[in-house]
């Protein structure tokens, strides 16, 4: 029993040490501090709070994009949002590309912290050549928007 514990501790210690060393040397090593915001920054996107989103939505040239499915979008979305489901990127992107290309800032969101589609969409947009400072992820997503009692729109997106 004692030997098992010692061996387990040794395996965890060696694994952790190797992991930290590899991460420090690897070109795609993760920033250990800064959590999600630091990870998104490394990928070329920035994370935005609700306050920032509200501020930037007042500025000309800001476009907000809902990364959820069209069915979810129809049930409710942030006013004036475009819909580009991350799961079905190409056809939806083609519809909104002219608007996105004109945008100074593109804010993407989905269903909040546990959904990954906004990050997936941000990566797709960055891969399409939207420069680093133009793509932001509203991490709290629609639940964060609704918690603040802000209005939502219903219905399909019509380009």
């Amino acid at each position: 029993m004692r030997r098992s514990f010692l061996q387990m501790a040794a395996l965890v210690a060696v694994g952790s040490l190797v992991g930290l060393t590899y991460n420090a040397l690897a070109p795609n090593g993760l920033p250990l501090r800064g959590g999600t915001a630091a990870r998104l920054a490394q990928e070329g996107a920035r994370m935005m709070s609700l306050q920032e989103v509200r501020y930037y939505l007042q500025q000309p040239g800001t476009v907000i994009v809902d990364a959820r499915s069209s069915e979810e979008f129809e049930l409710g979305h942030i006013p004036h949002a475009l819909n580009v489901p991350a799961d079905n990127f190409a056809p939806y992107y083609a519809k909104v590309a002219p608007e996105l290309q004109k945008a100074k800032l593109i804010i993407v969101y989905c269903s909040g912290g546990s959904c990954g589609t906004s990050e997936e969409l941000a990566k797709e947009l960055i891969a399409k050549g939207y420069s680093d400072n133009r793509v932001a992820v509203f991490h709290d997503g629609l639940p964060g928007w609704m918690r603040a009692n802000l209005p939502i729109e219903r219905g399909t997106y019509k380009p």
Partner: peptide, 8 residues
């Protein structure tokens, strides 16, 4: 960073 290496 560390979990995959512990697995490995």
């Amino acid at each position: 960073v560390i979990l995959p290496w512990i697995e490995a």
